[in-house]
């Protein structure tokens, strides 16, 4: 009986090993199963979903106008102090003083892409862009000014 157990042990063991080898052998001969993405080469085909959160951008339209009122809701919503908004006072033609955005500073190096600022924005001025290649040689380059030079608030945004 000892011998029988001994031989069944060997048989079962060898069989399980051969089953494993059959599986790897299958993949060795079936190159179609390869799922590697050749990243820097496939930049063109790389389709990131529209919701992918890469960095915060301030939307500008063709007239170089944005929808940011400088209300600092995003600055308050941010858990990391990533956003800093500097406001100024615009003087309207009627002579009224009105608070407006001067500089929208965005510290990409502190950002964790949590999307809370986008959710908090009452005028949908900021969105998440799909760019994810953020590496730079100098940390200071990651501090960005989001409003383009000369841009101003779109008409009708309060």
């Amino acid at each position: 009986m000892f011998l029988k157990d001994y031989i069944t042990d060997i048989y079962k063991g060898v069989k399980s090993l051969l089953i494993g080898m059959r599986r790897t052998g299958y993949y060795f001969t079936h190159h179609k199963e390869i799922i590697t993405q050749q990243y820097p080469d496939n930049r063109e085909e790389l389709n990131l979903p529209t919701r992918f959160r890469g960095e915060v951008i301030l939307l500008h339209d063709e007239n170089n106008e944005h929808a940011c009122t400088g209300c600092t809701a995003c600055e308050l919503a941010c858990p990391n102090g990533t956003i800093k908004i500097i406001t100024k006072f615009d003087v309207s033609p009627e002579g009224k003083k009105k608070k407006a955005l001067d500089t929208f500073i965005y510290h990409l190096e502190l950002c964790t892409m949590c999307n809370l600022c986008v959710v908090a924005c009452p005028t949908d001025a900021i969105v998440m862009a799909q760019n994810f290649e953020h590496s730079v040689y100098d940390r200071s380059k990651l501090t960005k000014k989001l409003n383009k030079p000369g841009s101003k608030i779109r008409e009708g945004i309060e």
Partner: peptide
Amino acid sequence: KVAAFMQIRM
């Protein structure tokens, strides 16, 4: 190469 093909990579 053998390792790569068995591991479904290039």
